[in-house]
């Protein structure tokens, strides 16, 4: 199993790499300018990062190209997730209430990514922006008190977005969410 982490300049990009490594996945952190053709992977993580989704979406490099061409699963985290919704025609911008640190997430509907996760659960956040309007091709399945779009998935493709950070120690079920994503990658593995 080979899942790479696309670096969008996050404080916890390297944590994503660590969680995957601990789960015996072959992994590398790659610049978001890596050409799609150079990727020989079973899945990708689009990391969070400092760029603001409104004015600086271009700083997410080839992320759009990955979404266009990938036949493998992709999980976007924080700005990576916001980019996904934006790319498919939704809108994203400054959060009505930015969340930093501890928050509680409520699951609205079952999803493979959250298999075994018991709602509500404690997560760790760090975002100034959020998804405002979800594109029609996506389904939202979790929210918090101050943020309507905490987890969502493409209705047909294996693309997932989470606003919170499953890769940090303080998020409950973080490792389970990664394990579920790895299972999804395994299903698509050729």
């Amino acid at each position: 199993m080979k899942i790479f982490v696309v670096d969008n300049g996050g404080q916890w990009t390297h944590r994503e790499w660590r969680v995957l490594k601990y789960l015996d996945v072959e992994t590398e952190i790659i610049p978001n300018t890596t050409p799609f053709e150079d990727l020989d992977v079973d899945g990708l993580i689009l990391s969070g990062g400092a760029p603001r989704i409104g004015e600086e979406a271009l700083m997410l490099g080839n992320s759009g190209d990955y979404l266009d061409k990938a036949e493998f699963p992709i999980m976007g985290i924080c700005v990576g997730a916001q980019f996904m919704a934006l790319y498919y025609g939704g809108t994203a911008g400054p959060a009505t209430v930015p969340e930093f640190g501890k928050t509680s997430v409520i699951i609205e509907e079952e999803n493979e990514l959250f298999e075994g996760v018991i709602s509500p659960f404690q997560v760790w956040e760090s975002h100034n922006d959020e998804v405002k309007i979800m594109p029609d091709t996506f389904k939202n399945f979790a929210h918090s008190k101050d943020c309507a779009h905490q987890a969502f998935a493409h209705k047909e493709k294996p693309f997932y977005g989470v606003q919170f950070h499953p890769e940090v120690e303080h998020t409950e079920y973080g490792e389970d969410i990664f394990k579920n994503f790895i299972k999804i990658c395994a299903k698509y593995k050729k």
Partner: peptide, 16 residues
């Protein structure tokens, strides 16, 4: 260690 260079920033990563 990792947090030292992560928080020190560079390129896309902000300097904390």
């Amino acid at each position: 260690i990792a947090p030292d260079w992560i928080e020190s920033g560079g390129d896309l990563r902000d300097v904390i």
